[in-house]
Amino acid sequence: MLYAILCYNDEAAVEAWPKAKDDAVIAHRRQVTDRLAEAGKLGPVLRLMPTTAATSLRHGPDPLVLDGPFAETKEQLLGFYVIDCASLEEAIETAKQIGASDTGTFEIRPLRYFSAGSLQKEPV
């Protein structure tokens, strides 16, 4: 079974960490993920930029682009894509295409860090 681990925390508190603390957290996580990577059991790893860098796209007949992160609590996180785009404009356009005729919201958030991982698996 493939699992996604989604990391939640208080963004402002994490921003208040001294750099040494942030480095220590990342170093610890690297110890674990490096092991997984060697065993071919690590998929993509990514760190998101702060929510201040986010833009949201609300689907519908007339899709609505909103500044800021997805903020509602009535909907749940169901999946995500990682795409490579030259600009936010292109990312929004792509998101519109992916979500055409859907309901719900896509949050478009630039990545701070990305590693494709070592996972070799047939699509589930």
């Binding site: 930029m49 201040t52 860098a53 833009t55 500044d67 936010l88 404009e89 630039p110 701070r112």
Partner: peptide, 10 residues
């Protein structure tokens, strides 16, 4: 730099 550029983009 990346975060700054992302914000300008927005």
């Amino acid at each position: 730099i990346n975060e700054g550029c992302a914000l300008i983009d927005k």
